[in-house]
Design a protein around this nucleic acid. Structure first.
Lengths: 214, 214
DNA sequence: GAGTAAATGTATACCAGGTGCAGAAATCGT
DNA sequence: ACGATTTCTGCACCTGGTATACATTTACTC
């Protein structure tokens, strides 16, 4: 058990290689033929691994795709936690999202690299993957609610309400961007609109729906 | 096709009876033994129907449970559409939700009848059912966004943003109520708190998160 | 460096949800 | 009552996922 060693040990390295091999084989096949058109058995064969081993690394077929986003699940929560002490949570989240737009972070929906777009399309075409993304969203809500409670000592319910609103809005923005790129609009061309929409959305979050309806 | 006849025809009636028989058998078995512990084959047998026929009526196992909520998917959208002309959408939704609390509408999470609570628990215990509920939520968002666009001519993106916020908040409120009832709190005792929380939540929607964090 | 315990991997058989198909049975219009 | 049309059924089949029992590899100890 060499946990803090510089050398992770052969076993560990081999595991990582296998993990990557399976994941790569999966993504490659899925992108080429579609998620539902490729069976896990085929993925296992392409990765030169038994089906059972595949399921030892990835609990479900969907995880073969979604595990790459695992870090993003707690991203917003982390942003809130790590914000400067003179910054209010919502501002930190907005700044982070705008930075994501600049960097064309795929999670903002504003990345038009063919790989990313094909991945996006693949997910939308597979209901089980869409469902998985929803679960992902729920996880983000929970993490954010906890971060709000702990760093802005927001009361329980308020934290949950704020969290679901913030996550839902970010998600909607990203979906809107991705949708437009899927339609063929280049990211660079969309950028200005994406920023404006984000500003609008976060202003809505801050000021409420009052101004919309009245 | 006798759609408006008094006589629906034998075929139609039989279909409805079969539909109900399958659904009832499913719910009964699921409540008794748990969703994952009962196979669709068992449901089919209990309903005296072939497995193939079962899937002709319900596309997936989850639908055996969720089809009962189908109407609720567009409920908020309907409320917005049918609101009096001098009422703003958010107000209509709030009033409707508060009315739901009074009536102990299960969708508000404030119904503590044993049947309802067991159903709720059953759903939470089955990941695939939870996933299905999320999809349900997404449907509600879309329907509401459209209603907002059409009856309050809210611009596309704004409508979507408002819709996801409203749906998310209602959902959070319902979940919070249901959670407390699951904990053993009687609905009548919870009622006052539920109303206060709902008012708080809708005020948040109206006035924004500004007052929370600043 | 040999030997052993622990961890990983494999083959095989199995279960459950879901679909395709061919034909039997019920319902409908006339 | 009769043919046309739906609906139901049984069966075989595919796929995702799991259990079991066994083989292989790695790591640790002396």
């Amino acid at each position: 058990m060499s946990a803090v060693d510089g050398k992770p040990g052969l076993r560990e390295r081999k595991k990582q290689r296998t993990h990557a091999a399976i994941s790569d084989a999966a993504i490659t096949l899925f992108l080429e033929h579609g998620f539902n058109q490729v069976s896990v058995a085929q993925v296992a064969e392409a990765a030169e691994v038994s089906k059972r081993t595949l399921f030892a690394y990835f609990p479900t077929k969907e995880d073969l795709v979604v595990h790459r986003l695992a870090d993003h699940e707690t991203e917003t929560a982390r942003v809130v936690r790590d914000r400067p002490s003179d910054t209010v949570p919502l501002t930190a989240v907005r700044e982070h999202f705008l930075k994501g737009l600049i960097e064309r972070d795929p999670i903002t929906g504003l990345n038009d690299h063919p790989q990313v777009r094909r991945l996006h399309r693949m997910i939308l075409d597979a209901p089980s993957l869409v469902a998985r993304m929803e679960r992902f969203k729920t996880g983000a809500e929970r993490a954010l609610a906890q971060a709000l409670r702990e760093t802005a000592d927001t009361p329980e319910l308020t934290a949950r309400l704020a969290a679901v609103q913030i996550v839902a809005v970010q998600w909607a923005l990203a979906q809107d961007n991705a949708e437009r790129l899927a339609y063929g609009e280049p990211a660079d061309e969309r950028y200005a609109g994406a920023v404006a929409d984000a500003e609008h959305a976060f202003a809505l979050l801050e000021n409420g729906l009052r101004h919309v309806f009245m």
